[in-house]
Design a protein around this nucleic acid. Sequence first.
DNA 1: ACGTCCATGATACCTTCGTATCACCCGCAC
DNA 2: GTGCGGGTGATACGAAGGTATCATGGACGT
Lengths: 209, 209
Amino acid sequence: MSQTTPIVFVVDDDISVRESLELLIRNAGWQPELLATAQEFLARPRVLAPSCLVLDVSLPGLNGLELQRRIAADRTDMPIIFITGHGDVPMSVQAMKAGAVEFLTKPFGDGVMLGAIRNAIERSRNALGHDAEMRELRDRHASLSRRERQVMALVVTGKLNKQVGGDLGISEITVKAHRGQVMRKMKAGSVADLVKMAGKLSSPPASRA
Amino acid sequence: MSQTTPIVFVVDDDISVRESLELLIRNAGWQPELLATAQEFLARPRVLAPSCLVLDVSLPGLNGLELQRRIAADRTDMPIIFITGHGDVPMSVQAMKAGAVEFLTKPFGDGVMLGAIRNAIERSRNALGHDAEMRELRDRHASLSRRERQVMALVVTGKLNKQVGGDLGISEITVKAHRGQVMRKMKAGSVADLVKMAGKLSSPPASRA
DNA sequence: ACGTCCATGATACCTTCGTATCACCCGCAC
DNA sequence: GTGCGGGTGATACGAAGGTATCATGGACGT
C-alpha cells in the first residue's frame, strides 16, 4: 500500500547506543531518527508514516516511562520498545501495562531488536489504517447537525421512524428528511452500514491487537 | 448481580506463602483455594464465580509461565497475578505480554496484593458477563439452519431481500421466510440488533479492557 | 436586507419489509 | 408409512422505508 519508509525513532542519552542502533536500523531498510532526550522527541512534529519508538527508560529530565504516559494516549500509531541497562521488574511491568510492545535489557542481540521493531512497525501500520478510518468516520459524524445526530442515534438502536419522531417530538416526515441527510453525509449505503459506523464511533479509542 | 463469593486460587509450592495468602484473602472476604502445583490446579473443575489466580512463576514440574500458556486462551475469566522470589525482567515481560494482569516480586505489601486481586476480580466479573453474552449469541447462531445463516450473513451487509435472493439463487419470498426465522431465532428486535449481533459474533475472541 | 443552513411539515408515489396462509418436495427418524 | 423439519415458492395485504417537490420560519453571517 504505502511506499513510505517506516521511521524508527531512537531516544537514548548514550550516543554509542544511538549510533549502533542507527546502523542497525538503516541496514534493515528503515529510516532512523536519533534523539538524546524526551524533550527533543516531543518537539518533533507527528509523522504520517508507520513508525515506532525505541526508548531508553532512564533519561535526563523526562524519563522514558513519563514520556510514554504523555504519548501513549494519542499516539497509538507509535508503539514503544523500551531498552534499559539496569531495569527492574516493577519498571518493566509498569511499562508493559501502559502498553509497551517490548521491554529489552541491554545487552540485547541485533536479531531480537530487529524482530521487535518489525513487530512494532506492523502494529503501527495497522493502527495507522485504523486511525485513518476513525478520523474519516468522526469527520463525517461531526458534519451532521444536532438533529441529524439525534436521529442517527435513535435509528441505529433499531427504532422505527415513527418512534424516533415520537421520542424527539417531531413528525415522521421530518425524521425521514433527517435520516436521508444522515445516510448521505455518513456515506452509508444501508442501515446496516450505519449501525456498524455507530458501533465504531461509540467504541473506546483502541484495543490492542 | 451474582452473590457468589469470588474465588482466589493460589498456586505456590511454598506452604508459608500459601498460608499467609490464605489468611489475607479470607479476611478480605474472598474464598481462597490453595494448591501447590500447576497439575493440581489443572485438575480442578472450572468455576462459574468471578475468580483470579495468584501464581508463582517457579513451580516444580509445570512452571507458572507454562501454566499460563495452557489456560490463558480459554480461561479469559480468570486473570493471572504472578508472584516470584527471583524474577527477572524478560520473565515479567513475557508474562505481561501473555496477558497477566500483574507481576509482583516478593516481598510485596498486603495492600499491593489486595489491590491487584480486587482489580483482577473486577476483570473476571466483566469477562464472565461478556462470555455469557457470547455463549448465548453463539448458541442462537448455532440454532440457525445453513440457509438461515447464509441469509443472515448477507442481510447484515445491508443487502436487500431481492439481492440476497439473487446471490443465493432463490426467490425473494423464500428469503423473507428465512429472514423471519433468523430474527426469531436470534431474538433480534430489528435489523440494527441483528447487525450488532453479527458484529460480536465475527469479532475476535476478546480484547483487553 | 439578503442568502444560507437548519429544522420543520405536507403531499405524492414507489419500493421494500414483514407476515400470514397455503402449497410442494425432500430427507430422516420413529 | 407417518411425522417433522428444512427448503422452496406463491398470493395478498398492511406497515414502513425512501425520495422528490414544495413551503414556512428562525438563526447567523455578510
